[in-house]
Write a protein that binds this DNA or RNA. Structure first.
Lengths: 221, 221
DNA sequence: AAAGGTCTGTTGTATTTACAACGAAAGCAG
DNA sequence: CTGCTTTCGTTGTAAATACAACAGACCTTT
C-alpha cells in the first residue's frame, strides 16, 4: 500500500494532502488493494458498491451490455482516476454497468462511510478529503451537464456551434484551441467524423468561423 | 426564513433532519433569502457562485445563449430543488449558463464553505448534511451518465433500445412502465417524437418488444 | 529522399431523421 | 352524452446523416 502513496498524492481525491498524512489516512479509511488479470471483471452489472475506487495500475473499461447482447464501451479509466463515486448512494439500486480490466490492473478501495463520517480521532485532513470528493464529483457533474447540452442539439451543426460557443466563453476569447483532434471531437459530440468535417467546412464558407488544425476563431455575422 | 422550514424538511439537502434542527442549522450555514421578479436573472453567464441554492417558491430556467445569440433552455427548476451544486468548485471557471426566474421566485442561499467545513460547535446533523449533498450530486451524476449513454447512441432505434434495456435491468423484469409519455421520452432522448413513435412501431412489428401506453415488454429474439 | 502512417477534407449514395399534417383514441369538463 | 383537448401513431417529403472511399497534407522513420 505504501508504494502507492506517491500516486495517490497526485490524485484529485488526495489533492493537498502530504504523503505522510496519506499513509495515516489509509488506515483510517480502511483502504484495501485488489488486483485483476487482463479480461477479469472488477464489477458486474447488478452489484452493490460500498466503496470509492482509485485505479493504481493498468486500464479499465466501463462498459454495458444491453438486453439483446450488444456491447458498448462508455468510458476508459486510467491510473490515478477515481471511479464508482456515482454508485455509493444507499437505496439507489445496483450498478448498471460492467467494469472490466483490459490490462493487468491494481485497484484501491476506500470505505465510503469512513470517508463521509468524520472519524473520532478527527484527522486534520478529513475535511480536506471530503472537500476533494465533493469538488471532484461537482466538477464531473458540470462536465456532464455541459456535454449533454451539446449532445442534445439535434444537428451536427448545432452541436458544433454550441460546443465552440462554450469554448469561446470559457477562454474569454473568440480565438482558442481545443484539446481534441477531429475524430476525438466527433466522438465527444457523438457524430460522424466526416459529416462533422463537412459541416465545419460549410461553417467556414459561410463566414461563421475559421480554423487551422485545433485553432478555432468564431466570427461575428 | 422560519416559514420555509417545512419545505426544507422535504428537500434532499435536509433529508433526515427535523424542523427544529433545520432552524438552528440555517444560522450555522449563514442562509440568505432572495426574491426575484418574473423575468429577472438570478445569475448570469460568467459569474462566480459561492453558494448552494434551493428554490423555495416559483420556477427557474437554466438557459444558455450561444455566441450568435440563439437561446436554449437546459433545465427547469421547481420548488424544493437544489441547484448550483456543480459550480461551487474553486478555480473551476465561471458559470456557463444563465438562471432566469420565469415566475416570481424565492431562492435560499447556503454558504458552501460552511457546509463543507465541520463547524466548531459540531452540530450533530452536520455530518448528515454532508452525506445528503454527496448523495444528491452522486445521484445526479449517475443519472447524467446514464442519460449520456443513451444519447450517445447514433440512431433513434439504438437510443430507444439502450434506454429500455436499462429500465428492464433496473426493474429486474422484461416488463415495466416508464415515467414518460411519448413527447417526454422523445425530449429525454433528444429525438423527434414522431420518428420515435415510428421506430417503436417497427420494433413491435419485428417482435423485439410490446407496449401499451407506458407499459413496455422486451422480447427475446 | 523515400516509404509508411495518420489526420483531415471531400464526395456520392443509401439510409435515417425532421417536420408538418392528419385522424383515431383517450381523457376531461360541462 | 357532447364537445374540447391531449396524446399517439402514421404518412409523405425535404433535409440531414452515416458510411465508404479516396486524395492531399503532414508526420515520423529509415
Amino acid at each position: 500500500m505504501k508504494k502507492y502513496a506517491a500516486l495517490l498524492k497526485r490524485t484529485k481525491l488526495f489533492s493537498g494532502v502530504g504523503e505522510n498524512d496519506i499513509l495515516s489516512m489509509l488506515h483510517c479509511l480502511n483502504a484495501q488493494v485488489r488486483e485483476y488479470n487482463k479480461g477479469e471483471y472488477a464489477f458486474r452489472q447488478g452489484e452493490y458498491i460500498r466503496s470509492l475506487m482509485i485505479l493504481a495500475v493498468g486500464r479499465l473499461h466501463i462498459q454495458k451490455e444491453d438486453y439483446w447482447g450488444n456491447l458498448n464501451i462508455l468510458n476508459e479509466i486510467r491510473p490515478g482516476e477515481m471511479f464508482g463515486e456515482a454508485y455509493i448512494v444507499p437505496n439507489s439500486g445496483t450498478l448498471m454497468n460492467d467494469v472490466v480490466a483490459i490490462e493487468e490492473s491494481v485497484v484501491l478501495f476506500f470505505d465510503i462511510d469512513r470517508i463521509l463520517t468524520v472519524c473520532p480521532s478527527a484527522c486534520p485532513f478529513h475535511t480536506q478529503l471530503i472537500k476533494n470528493i465533493f469538488y471532484t464529483i461537482s466538477d464531473k457533474n458540470k462536465s456532464l451537464v455541459q456535454k449533454i447540452s451539446y449532445m442534445s442539439q439535434r444537428s451536427t451543426r448545432e452541436k458544433l456551434l454550441s460546443y465552440l460557443s462554450d469554448e469561446a466563453k470559457r477562454h474569454n476569447s473568440n480565438s482558442f484551441s481545443i484539446p481534441f483532434n477531429r475524430q476525438q471531437l466527433a466522438d465527444f459530440l457523438s457524430v460522424d467524423r466526416s459529416a462533422m468535417s463537412n459541416e465545419l467546412s460549410k461553417l467556414r464558407n459561410e463566414g461563421m468561423l475559421d480554423f487551422h488544425k485545433n485553432e478555432f476563431t468564431l466570427r461575428e455575422l
